[in-house]
């Protein structure tokens, strides 16, 4: 929606008021999610020296079904980077971030609308597209804050846990995680902006997350590599950024997908009735 200048006898009082409010409202949630990540990091990473370089442990994993070994990367625990990816970034961090991003994305429009509070916000001096844009920006910011703090925890454990990660690769895998989580969260936001229903938003967001993970896993175990090209999870982690650094192609796909979801969200939201679902 255009923010017409002809009528604006009153200029906007603050820049990004909805983004600010959204960030302020999420302070407690951000703290909680960050603590969850730091706890996970502390739970897994310090054990690398006793698992990764332990021949008995390696032998133990080889008895697992080969599919399980492949999906969870159990055959690659020999390096700190692979261990960190298999235990944290590729599994628990993805799971936690997907849940957080889906709940933020579903709450952004649909949750606020179902609670009845969006109506009064919309009746003030804000445009439809502005609401979607600022809340999408808040989603990206929140995801980035948690991932940055969690990655900092990983980096601080790097020496202690003998992970031998490089700073560049930690940044690369963190950016990939941000991109993946934002894509999943933006799918939820878009579904909520179009439908006005939180359950629809959550279902679509979870669908994108789960399908991404499943497609990536099936592509490996069934030896169907083309399947993975439809998986946001694969776009993020397929090229092993924690080992190989930034994957421009994968990040571009994630950015494109998130942008498409944002465009759908704006286009759907500016057209429809608010608060009648």
């Amino acid at each position: 929606m255009t923010r017409g200048q002809t009528l604006s006898k009153h200029p906007p009082v603050t820049t990004l008021p909805l983004w600010r409010k959204s960030m302020r409202d999420s302070r407690l949630g951000l703290l909680g999610w960050t603590l969850g990540h730091v706890g996970t990091v502390l739970l897994y990473l310090p054990f690398y020296p006793s698992i990764g370089s332990n021949a008995n442990m390696q032998a133990f994993f080889t008895d697992f079904p080969s599919e399980v070994v492949t999906i969870f990367g159990l055959d690659q625990l020999g390096s700190g980077a692979a261990y960190t990816q298999a235990t944290y970034f590729g599994l628990v961090a993805f799971l936690l971030m997907a849940i957080a991003a889906i709940s933020w994305g579903a709450a952004a429009i649909a949750g606020d609308e179902e609670s009845g509070q969006l109506e009064l916000t919309m009746a003030h001096g804000v445009g439809r597209a502005q609401v979607v844009r600022e809340r999408a920006l808040a989603l990206v910011t929140k995801v980035a804050v948690v991932v940055v703090l969690a990655s900092l925890a990983v980096w601080l454990l790097n020496d202690y846990a003998e992970l031998e990660l490089t700073a560049t690769n930690v940044v690369a895998v963190s950016v990939a995680l941000v991109g993946l989580s934002v894509t999943v969260g933006m799918a939820a936001l878009a579904a909520g902006a179009v439908s006005g229903r939180r359950t629809v938003a959550t279902t679509v967001g979870a669908g994108v997350a789960v399908m991404g993970y499943v497609l990536d896993a099936v592509s490996q175990t069934a030896h169907l590599p083309w399947l993975a090209s439809f998986s946001p999870y694969h776009w993020a982690f397929g090229a092993s950024p924690i080992v190989n650094g930034f994957d421009g192609a994968g990040l571009s796909l994630l950015a494109a997908a998130a942008t498409v979801f944002l465009v759908v969200a704006v286009a759907g939201f500016v057209r429809r009735d608010v608060g009648t679902g």
Binding site: G4, K9, S115, G127, Q130
Partner: peptide, 21 residues
């Protein structure tokens, strides 16, 4: 619809079913 945000700054609205945080 075309007036958008700038127009609504000049309007005060009290909804019939007031929902607040």
């Amino acid at each position: 619809r075309s007036g958008g945000a700038a127009l609504r700054r000049r309007v005060g609205y009290l909804p019939g079913e007031l929902r607040l945080e």
